[in-house]
Amino acid sequence: MFVDQVDLSEARAPTSVRRKLKPVLLWSAVTDTTQGAGAGEILSAPLIIEYPFKRTTGPVIGAFLTGLRERVLIGSRAEDGRVIVPPAEFDPVSGNDLTELVEVGPAGVVTTWAWVSAPHAKHPLDRPFAWAQIRPDGADTSMLGAVDAGAMENMQTGMRVTPVWADEREGHICDIARWIPESDGGNA
């Protein structure tokens, strides 16, 4: 379609331009669709959105992610003494760098939760589960996790849960495959 609209006649374009454009515009790019069996069809091409670079996660978040790979939970100590997990790179009050890392949990306490009866395809579990904020032992703040509790009746604020680690871990938040009530086994 576009080919018909491009006027490459001698009068409109100098010979040198014609020579350059002809193979580029006409023959390699569009001839198959415009002149072949698919004439008149809408052209399409794959669009892949990507960041073609890597970013380091730094000494604090990096330590947290490395810890997950080694089945260890890492927090950072704030200036007021609180242990924050996932670790904060900067003090939430003063903004100063935080450098002291502290091992916490991995088991902990549910501080709030929400029951998902119809999981989304992207959710971490394919059966009804609870989102929960979980405060690991030794920490003063909570982190998000999916608790595999079977039924809503098994969930309660204040209950103890423990992580189930993925078999293959790569230093990613999904290295914690799920959390389970400590009463269901613990020390998994």
Partner: peptide
């Protein structure tokens, strides 16, 4: 994007 996003909590 590191500690929450990959879990897709709607």
């Amino acid at each position: 994007p590191i500690t929450m996003g990959p879990l897709w909590p709607d």
